[in-house]
Amino acid sequence: MSQYEKHVLGLSGGKDSAALAVYMRQHYPELDIDYFFTDTGKELPEVYEFLGKLEGFLGKPILRLNSNRGFDFWLKQYNNFLPSAQTRWCTRQLKLKPFEEWINPILDEGFTVYSYVAIRADEPYREGYNAKQKNLHVRLPFKEDGIDKPGVSEILESSGLGWPKYYEWRSRSGCTFCFYQQKIEWVRLQERHPESFEEAIAYEKDALDHGSPFTWSQGESLTELIKPERVEQIKADYAKRLERIKAKKAENPLRPDDSLIDIDDVYGQPKFCVACHK
């Protein structure tokens, strides 16, 4: 490895990037990889817990990158309009910008930087993952080596890390109030972390008072979503969808994968920010 090369791997707190970190340590031990996590300050406690476990396995600290300005500052800058799939200012200001502020001086020094991203072999490649700087190169080891979702699960289980605990009730890492959450995930957030749910309601009410066209969950406010009759409806709908998915899956005794059905599978092809959820 050249002294003018740098290797970096971003961790979101999600299963795929964690599995990639494990995979790179096991299969490419000669690479001195800097692992980093961009902390928005609004992450789930389970994310921090899992990152601690991952540091123990990797045998080196995970660099924490923080925005100079937090979510509340940027919310004001965007006229109290909530971030959404149409205006993902949270990803730009709280995830991408801190990374650029860290990596750009290294690139300016003349280093060639290789960034390893956890896009699996069973996922479509998106041009948005391409780096714009000529000496910053994106590498997709899982795609190159044919590692799919069951493969990711095998990597985490065999390493002893297992999956992050939030997968018991949620399909993604990222902010507690991520707008990509399914409605069942909002219900479960209220059950698991009521204080975070109340914070999300407060942000939403303030945004709506300032004319924001978006609510956290499409088509209804969190106040409406959490009404008892609506919660019952959401849970019943999820249960029906889950049973349909299970009925369609072909059983493979050599590779049982019922545990790999997550919430996004139930509701179809998921949308996500790679910086937050991989």
Rank of each mutant, 00 (worst) to 15 (best):
P141K: 02
V138L: 04
V152C: 04
Y28L: 04
P253D: 07
Q26A: 12
G14V: 03
L65R: 07
E123R: 12
P141F: 00
H277A: 00
L11I: 14
E220Y: 00
L11N: 02
W163M: 08
R230A: 14
K149T: 15
K235M: 12
I33V: 00
L242E: 15
L54W: 07
P45C: 02
L63A: 07
I62Q: 07
E100A: 13
T38Q: 06
R88A: 10
G162E: 02
L9Y: 01
E243P: 02
R170Y: 05
L189E: 09
Q133R: 14
P105R: 09
S217G: 03
K246M: 13
E224L: 05
H193T: 02
S217W: 01
S67A: 11
G110P: 06
F179N: 07
P270W: 11
I119W: 00
E30D: 10
K76H: 13
Y129T: 12
K248Y: 08
T215R: 09
G13H: 09
W169G: 13
K95G: 07
Q233S: 13
L20W: 07
L54M: 08
L94H: 06
K205C: 08
Y23D: 06
V266I: 10
I184M: 06
Y23P: 03
E185Q: 07
W216L: 13
S153I: 06
F71M: 05
I155M: 06
N135T: 15
A85N: 05
S158M: 10
C90E: 10
Y167N: 03
R255S: 12
T40L: 05
R172I: 01
I33H: 00
G160T: 13
E101H: 09
D72E: 15
A275E: 07
Y23T: 06
V47S: 00
L44V: 01
E195C: 08
V22N: 01
L63S: 06
E220G: 02
E154K: 11
L136A: 07
F71H: 09
Y203F: 14
G70S: 15
E127K: 13
I155R: 01
V47R: 00
L96Q: 08
D206K: 09
W89K: 00
G56W: 01
Q133Y: 15
L156N: 02
W102N: 05
N79V: 02
F73M: 10
Y267P: 09
L44Y: 03
A18H: 01
Y125N: 13
T223C: 08
P194E: 14
L156S: 03
R255L: 14
L136T: 04
Q269G: 09
A202D: 13
A247Q: 10
N66Q: 14
L31G: 03
T112A: 11
G52E: 07
Q77D: 04
E30M: 04
V47Y: 00
Y114T: 02
E43G: 00
V231K: 15
K278M: 14
G211W: 11
G56C: 04
F177Q: 08
G52C: 04
S17I: 04
R25D: 03
H27Y: 03
H210N: 15
Y23E: 04
